[in-house]
């Protein structure tokens, strides 16, 4: 049975569930629908549920551009495909919608001094190259052979065993935190360090620059904050 494109109003805008078929068909179907109702829907924020469709960054680029021409903003792309999710994240789109009946909604931000960060909710395997112009938070491991390069801080909620470069554009104040900090190589701004052989059990650590040297210290909850 083939399903058809559905448009439904949700709290933050419109949720569009794409029908079956190849991406090219789905996209044209979507555009036709939106054009026919453009008067009524114009300016809406869209969340698209692409189902299992595999979308590369180029597909998404084209889609956001076409939507923008019609006066729509795409803010979320929901997908079952990891490739599509990755492309969506690269475009700064949300990949999940708040569930109806959620405990509370977050309207805007009350912390103007905070800085945005990229949250990566998976393990980075060998050969994976993550670069971001800001802070990076990984929930998962960074395996040997993977690399994370960030303009800001890098925080790994898991084992950090790959190569990591925080403050890649010269920020001396950048830090690297991990539950198990044993990277093949750790760089902060211009300094490079390798992990000494570990004694005993791994513990959460934070690495930062002290007088041009990379220093890793065990996380101490009672310690004075930086």
């Amino acid at each position: 049975m083939s399903s058809k494109l559905q448009i439904k109003g949700i709290r933050d805008g419109l949720l569009i569930t794409l029908g079956d078929g190849a991406w090219e068909e789905q996209r044209q179907d979507l555009m036709t629908q939106l054009r026919s109702q453009a008067e009524f829907l114009r300016g809406a924020r869209l969340a698209i549920d692409a189902g299992g469709a595999i979308l590369k960054a180029a597909d998404l680029g084209q889609l956001t551009k076409e939507l923008a021409e019609l006066g729509f903003t795409l803010y979320a792309l929901i997908s079952e495909s990891p490739t599509t999710e990755r492309s969506a994240l690269a475009f700064g789109l949300a990949t999940r919608l708040p569930k109806p009946g959620a405990a509370r909604t977050v309207a805007g931000s009350t912390e103007p001094d905070g800085e945005p960060a990229l949250l990566v909710n998976r393990t980075l395997r060998s050969g994976y190259n993550l670069q971001y112009q800001g802070h990076v938070v990984v929930i998962g491991d960074v395996n040997p052979g993977a690399q994370v390069i960030a303009r800001g801080d890098v925080i790994v909620w898991g084992k950090l065993r790959g190569m990591v470069h925080a403050g890649a554009e010269g920020d001396d104040g950048a830090v690297v935190c991990a539950l198990d900090l044993s990277p093949t190589q750790l760089r902060i701004a211009g300094a490079i360090a390798v992990t000494p052989k570990r004694r005993g059990k791994p513990q959460p650590e934070m690495a930062r620059l002290v007088q041009g040297q990379v220093v890793a210290e065990a996380w101490d909850p009672k310690r004075e904050r930086l």
Partner: peptide
């Protein structure tokens, strides 16, 4: 094992 890790990542990316 390092190469296996890479390959597993590629297999995931190919779905």
């Amino acid at each position: 094992v390092r190469d296996a890790d890479r390959i597993i990542g590629l297999i995931e990316a190919e779905e």
